[in-house]
Structure formats: C-alpha cells, structure tokens
Design a protein around this nucleic acid. Structure first.
Length: 835
DNA sequence: CAGTGAGCGAGCTTCCGCTTGACTT
C-alpha cells in the first residue's frame, strides 16, 4: 500500500510523474472528466435553482471504482489535474465521487512536467477553488441548455437528428458567410505591367531584371496606349533605396498553430495531426499536444540554447519568452515541444518522423536569433511617361533562425524574393520586353480545416481539445462538406512589346480549383439562416467572448453562477418556446419561376432526401401530383437557375424497349447510367450522354456489360443464389448477399465448395453492410456510433433474436463494442442457419 | 454502389470539454 495517491488527467503524464516522485507516491489517472450531466434528458433541474444531475459516465465506472479503492487505502490524496477551469472541476468531481475528506486531500498544480516543477508543487498544496469549479459548471450548464433546447427545435422545424450549439453553430456560420461572399463576388480584372531589362552583372554575364509598373490599367486599350508610349522610350534608374530589415521566428507550437502548419507543410488533416501527436506524446517524445500556451520551461530554454550553440554557434542563440495572445487561453501546459531537445530525430513511421521534425525545428527556431536582411527598392523612370517601374529585392545578410525553419503562409502564390543585380543611379537600362498581363481578382478563399481552426481561435471559440471534434461534427451533421473542385478554363490576354513591336496573345488558365476545402451544404445554409434569424445573440461571433467574461467573474467570486444562468435562461427559453409552437417550417423554399410548358410554379426546397426541384405545388390548382427531381451534387438551392432546373426534368429519359423491358437513361449518385430490367449500366463520362443516347447504342452498352459480368462470375451455387465466387478488382472473392469476403490464400477459387464458403463467411471478421441513400458522402466518422443508419440498410434488431453460435477469435471483455456490432453479424449467421 | 420526394407513426436524435482506447480497410 502506498502512502500517497496522486491523480492526474492523463495516463502518460502519470507515468512520467511517477518517475519524478519516487516510491512513496502512486500516480494514477482519471482519464479526463469522470462525471457529466445525465444524458437521458436535460440533466438540469431548472426549477430547483439549476441543480445539475451528474452521473458517472459509463466508460468511467471502472476507473472510478479503482480510484475509490486506492484512495481509501492512501493516507494522502493529491489532486493534480490541470490548473484551469476544467481541471479544477475534475478535481472537485473526484473529491465528491471518491468521498475524500478535506484533511487528507490536497490540490496541487504545475504548468510543466519537470522534476523541479512537480517537487515545488508538492511543497505548496492548496484546497479546491470552488469559485473556479462553479465557473466551469456554469459553462457546462449553459452549453447543455443551448444545445439541448436548440437541437430539438431543429428536429421539429427542419429535420431530425440535426444539432446546434454555442460552438458548432458559429463554426458553420463562418463557413456559410464566406460562401456567400464568394457567391456575391464580382470578378474584375486589370492589366499588370512588367518590364524585363537586361543588365550585365559583375562577371559580365547578362541577367534579367524584372520590374513592375506602379500602376495597373483597367482596360486593354489603356495598356496598349502605354506600350505605344514605351516604344521609343529610354529607361533610367532614378533611385536605389537599401534598407536593413529583420525577421523574427514564430512562437513555439500550440495545438492550433501545429494543426495549421502540419496542414500547410505536410498536408495533414486536423484530426490526422492530433492522432500522430497523441502517439508521440504517449511515447514520451513530445510534451502535451492539447495546449494553448506558447510558454517553454526553463529546462527547455536551457537545452535549446546548448543545442543551438553547439550546432550553429553562439551568434545563433537568442533566448526568448513568448506571451500568449489568443483570447481565452488558459495555459495549463507548456507549448508543444520535443520532450528531449537533444533528440533531432526519432524512430517511428514516416508521418511521426515528419511531425516530430516540424515540432523540433519550430521549437529550436523559436530560440534563435533574428534573420537580418537587406531590402532593395529600385525605381526606373520612363523618358516619356510619368509612370515608373519598381523592382524590389531581398538579400539575407545573416540567416539566423531561417537556417532551421520558416513558417508557411496560406497564400499559395507567393513569389520568393529576388536578388537585384548591381546597379547605379542614372544608369540607362536595356529593355528586353514589356508585358501587360490580364489579371483577374480572386474571390476570398474558402476555409480549409486548419484555417477554420485559426478563425475559431481568433474568435475565442472552442478549445485545443475540441478543434478536431468540431470539424468532424459539422461534417457529420451534413452542414459542411470537405470537397475538391476541378476548376474551369478561362482565357486571358497578354500584350507584349518586344523589338518595338506590340503583339497580342490569348492564353488559357485554370481557375477556381479547390482541394480539401470546406463547402457549406444546402442544409447547412438553411439551418444557419434559421438560427441567425431567430437567435441572433447566440449566433453572434462575440457570444462566447461575452459569456466567458461572466465565467471569469464567477471564478473571481464576483457573480453567482446560478444568477448568471437564470439571466440567460429567462431571455433564451421563451424564444425557444415561441418558435417551437409557431406553425412554420424551414425548407429553404425558393420560387424559380413558371414552367414554360404548363405554367405551373417551379420551386426548389429541401426534401426528405436532400434538395429537390418541383413543378407545381400540392396547394396549387389542378389535381396532378407535383413532379420532382433531385439537384446534382454541385448545384445549390441558393444558386440554381430556372434553366438549370428545367434541365433536371429531362431525366430520367425513356429511350425505348429491349427484350420487352423499358430502357431508361438518367444520372444518379455516381453519374450517368442506364436502367434496364432492374439492372444498372454505367454510362462512361465523355463516351455516352444520358440526354442524347439512343436505343441501339444503349443496347450495345448493356450487352458489353453482360459480357464483362460473365467473366466476373467464377462459380455459382445451386444451394443459394445469393452466394457467388467473383472476379474483382483485387482478385477473386466471395460475395454473399452483397457482403464480400476474402478467400484464403491456400484455396483455388473455382474449387471451393458451398460448405467451405459458408465456413469462410462465418469465421471472417464482422462486416458492416454498406449503406446507400444519403446524397452526401458516407461520413468518415471517427466515432463508431455514427454508423447507425436510419431506416434503410441493415435491420439488425428485428430479426435476430435467436441465438447462434458465432465464435469470436477474441473473448471481448468490453461490453460496449460487442453489443453494438454483433447485430449485423448475427443477421448473417442466422440466415445461414435457415437454409 | 445507383431509382424515391407518401405512407401508419413509436421512439430516437442533441451540447462542450476533459481523456484514451476499441474497432475497420
């Protein structure tokens, strides 16, 4: 039995601290919060002064039980959770749940995991700060009230299973508003003029000097006029200005800056970065990865200094302390840095090495000297014009931190600074050519995951531990889609003056290309507009900042938590009640115009399965049912035109009969197809067009596919038509009722018997049936429970009450996973038995 | 892997912040 029990939040932290503290201390972890509001209902007794109903979470039962037992035996319990609102609350919940007496409980905090920091903390214990705990509670309850009152409103007025919340709804708003800016953006252009001059350098070689004209021209005519003037002109250097400049390194990484840089430099998604960083942390290679602090421990500062001096010399070292500037930072940890600064590289997979390298360089660079530069600005006069050319260049005099690391920017087309060849004032320059290029203004950029994180951090919304989950939530709800766009070709013109002759050329460029950008969906825009219109204060970008001020006052003892909540609730709840009872549904309906053929109204709206156009309304005169058509993937309620809508009704198109069944052409989720006798035949892009294809060609397509399918089947079974051995993209496989199974390497595909197939199916790992129907991508969900498809796909519960002997390779100890997934497995197994 | 736009209508969905596994291809 140990005398001292120390409880921290993370098991990896526990391991390190235990080493520092020695034998008399047992260090355990709570794995974050151990209690939360009841999930079944609101979890708050509003009438009873907002009394919270806390429950020990299902997955924390085991930990709590263990901690309870250990704390009974220990003489002293040290609660060492983080020194911030959440950490204080964790400590308090622990003391409540473990029924710790005041006498044997001590609260300690440290901001860095070093031996010194921890032994110092042990010397200065305090008691739990109840004000801070109440501030956390207010935060928790407010979030619950907002989330659990707004979401049901959306279920009723928009669509089931939607969600809203203080953080996620504002995140969606950021993206929706950017999209609207882009939609409203009017592309304009101007002509940028660049002169190329030929200059002899010291070695007497001819080098080019490019200089840009100080003005841009609005029209081609103006640009041409200018070039005409230049025809006989002289070009003379009128001014050379040299200025020293400095560049300083960026601060060490926080969660958000790490996510941004890993995205720009390594192309990692936000969640990828976090998964890799977690692994590095668990292996003791970096410090904690969820932090908003830029602070480095003295130990780290000293190590960095030693390392820099031995590697680059004294001149390169400059010890710096950084201050956090982001809103609402709580600074419970250090910045993200290598645990051991003398380790330049690590073992691990490629991604781990790359991320570590990034962290290592950023940390080291942050402790290095400024880079010293010399910027040169050259002005070139034109003999018969008042315009001037400007050339600027940059020379690095001393590289300083740039030797190790330079931060990337989101701006893709940044030109690297040029070196200016030696020039003298009044020197006359030899003109090679002048080029006037048509440049189009670009719309504001769409957000990437990482730039959204940066924006949220600026707004003080969300915390390091939630940035990645926020991004996956708004995608899972279907508010936002991470997507690529091909871009379209656009032509632009160039005027070139060379050898006293002006020529015009038309060139092509691809514009509007997007990769892994966040696009709002129709439902995202709809929900956003609904909430912005009705709950302005919560949807305000400053809402979080405002309530944070109140939480701070609660933490300082200047405000009572329940009063704060009461004030909020009194204003908020009646609004929810009002809109709940008003008979109005939000379907984003927009009238496009009249159908030229029937004169009926054409409108777009959100339907059960996504956005649709329809001709006629149920309420309109006439007895016919409205005609419907789904919008295509890249069309939106907000932007579709009447012409585009009419186009949609041309499909599905009946093109004739074959083998006494109808042949129909249309476009589905995966592009154009033919439907014949309940079978689908894909129409290849660029080969066949569903709008124009005729019967003879359609028959060809069908026959071709049949031929291919014949070769696909290796073996059929008379015992069960649902069972097939097929030849697929990756070689032969077994298909049984639409689920696929691997064939063991030893067997010959054509010789496998029915019995053997069934054995393979039964012994293979569980399958999730692929689901259909939703128009968006099937979510790439990190959480398993998002796979509960509604309505369609597998129906595990209803038909699988009978028990079957399904051997699982591992005896699963965790209840949760088995109950969740065995349903589908049993469904397969029970069907086997019936036969 | 793909069409639908209704239907009886029970019972379900949901928040933000702390943490780590448990799965699968």
């Amino acid at each position: 039995m140990e005398e001292n029990l120390v409880i921290v939040e993370s098991p990896a932290k526990a391991k390190t601290i235990e080493k520092f503290l020695g034998k008399n201390y047992l260090v355990k972890s709570s794995y974050g919060h151990i209690r939360d509001l009841s999930k079944k209902n609101l979890g708050i007794d509003i009438q009873n002064n907002f009394e919270p109903q806390y429950e020990i979470s299902e997955d924390k039962q085991v930990v709590v039980k263990e901690l309870k037992k250990l704390s009974k035996d220990a003489k002293c319990i040290w609660l060492a959770s983080d020194e911030d609102r959440e950490g204080e609350a964790i400590a308090w919940h622990l003391s409540e749940v473990l029924e710790l007496s005041k006498e044997k409980t001590k609260r300690i905090v440290f901001h860095e995991i070093t031996k010194e920091a921890i032994t110092n903390a042990i010397k200065k214990p305090r008691s739990i700060d109840l004000n801070l705990v109440e501030a956390q509670q207010a935060r928790r309850l407010l979030d619950r009230i907002v989330g659990f009152e707004l979401s049901p409103l959306l279920w009723k007025k928009v669509k089931p299973s939607l969600s809203a919340g203080r953080v996620q709804s504002v995140a969606v708003r950021v993206i929706v508003e950017r999209e609207r800016e882009i939609i409203a953006f009017q592309s304009s252009y101007s002509f940028k003029v660049v002169g190329t001059f030929l200059i002899k350098n010291k070695e007497n070689e001819t080098v080019e000097l490019k200089a840009e004209l100080s003005t841009k021209f609005a029209t081609k005519e103006e640009a041409r006029k200018f070039l005409e003037i230049c025809k006989g002109a002289d070009f003379k250097v009128s001014d050379i200005v040299k200025k020293p400049a400095k560049k300083s390194p960026s601060a060490p990484f926080t969660t958000s800056t790490l996510q941004q840089e890993a995205s720009r430099k390594l192309g990692f998604s936000v969640s990828q970065t976090m998964v890799i960083a977690q692994r590095l942390y668990e292996e003791g290679k970096i410090t904690y990865m969820r932090t908003d602090s830029v602070n480095l421990s003295d130990l780290a500062l000293n190590l960095a200094k030693t390392e820099i001096i031995s590697e680059f010399g004294e001149k390169y070292s400059q010890t710096r302390k950084y201050k956090t500037k982001s809103k609402g930072a709580q600074e419970a940890h250090e910045a993200i840095r290598p645990a051991y600064l003398d380790k330049k590289t690590i073992t691990g997979n490629d991604a781990e090495k790359k991320l570590y390298d990034l962290i290592y360089k950023r940390t080291i660079a942050s402790q290095m000297s400024d880079a010293e530069l010399e910027r040169t600005q050259v002005t070139i006069d034109i003999s018969n014009s008042n315009h001037t050319f400007q050339a600027s260049g940059e020379v690095i005099k001393f590289d300083g931190f740039l030797r190790v690391y330079s931060e990337s920017t989101d701006d893709e087309k940044e030109e690297s600074p040029k070196i200016i060849p030696p020039l003298k004032v009044n020197q006359v320059l030899d003109l090679d050519n002048i080029k006037a290029t048509q440049k189009f203004a670009t719309h504001p950029p769409r957000y990437t995951e990482a730039s959204l994180v940066r924006r949220l951090e600026e707004l003080g919304i969300g915390r390091p531990s939630t940035y990645a989950p926020i991004i996956s939530t708004i995608q899972q709800r279907g508010y936002v889609l991470k997507d690529n766009r091909d871009g379209i070709e656009r032509s632009y013109s160039n005027l070139v003056l060379k050898n006293q002759k002006i020529t015009e050329e038309t060139k092509k460029e691809i514009t509007g290309q997007e990769k892994s950008k966040l696009f709002p969906t129709d439902i995202g825009m709809l929900v956003n507009d609904y909430l912005v219109g009705k709950f302005q204060s919560i949807m305000d970008f400053n809402f979080t900042a405002t309530v944070e001020k109140s939480f701070d006052e609660i933490a300082e003892g200047k405000m009572t938590w329940s009063n704060m909540l009461d004030d909020f609730y009194k204003k908020f709840h009646p609004l929810v009640e009002k809109f709940m009872n008003v008979n109005e549904y939000a379907d984003g309906k927009r009238v496009l115009g009249k159908d030229p053929q029937t004169g009926k109204t054409i409108l777009v709206r959100i339907g059960r399965f996504g956005p649709i156009v329809q001709i006629g309304e149920a309420t309109e005169e006439g007895d016919e049912k409205p005609k419907y058509a789904s919008l295509r993937k890249e069309q939106h309620i907000e932007t579709i035109t009447l012409e585009q809508a009419l186009e949609l009704f041309k499909l599905p198109r009946e093109i004739g009969e074959y083998e006494s069944s109808k042949v129909v052409a249309s476009i589905g989720r995966f592009g154009p197809y033919l439907l014949h006798n309940k079978k689908f035949y894909t129409l290849k892009k660029g080969v066949d067009d569903p709008y124009t294809i005729e019967l003879p060609r359609a028959i060809e397509v069908i026959d071709e596919k049949r031929d291919a399918d014949k070769n696909k089947i290796i073996k059929e079974f008379s015992e069960d038509s649902g069972l097939l051995i097929l030849n697929g993209r990756y070689g032969p496989y077994i298909s049984y009722n639409k689920l696929n199974y691997k064939i063991p390497k030893a067997s010959v595909p054509a010789n496998i018997s029915f019995k053997e197939c069934m054995e393979i199916i039964e012994s293979s790992p569980e399958k999730k049936p692929s689901r259909g129907f939703s128009r968006g991508k099937t979510t790439n969900s990190p959480k398993a429970n998002t796979y509960k498809a509604k309505g369609s796909s597998a129906k595990p519960k209803s038909e699988t009450t009978q028990k079957t002997k399904t051997e699982k390779p591992k005896t699963s100890s965790t209840k949760k996973t088995s109950s969740k997934t065995t349903g589908t497995k049993k469904a397969v197994a029970s069907k086997v038995k019936k036969k």
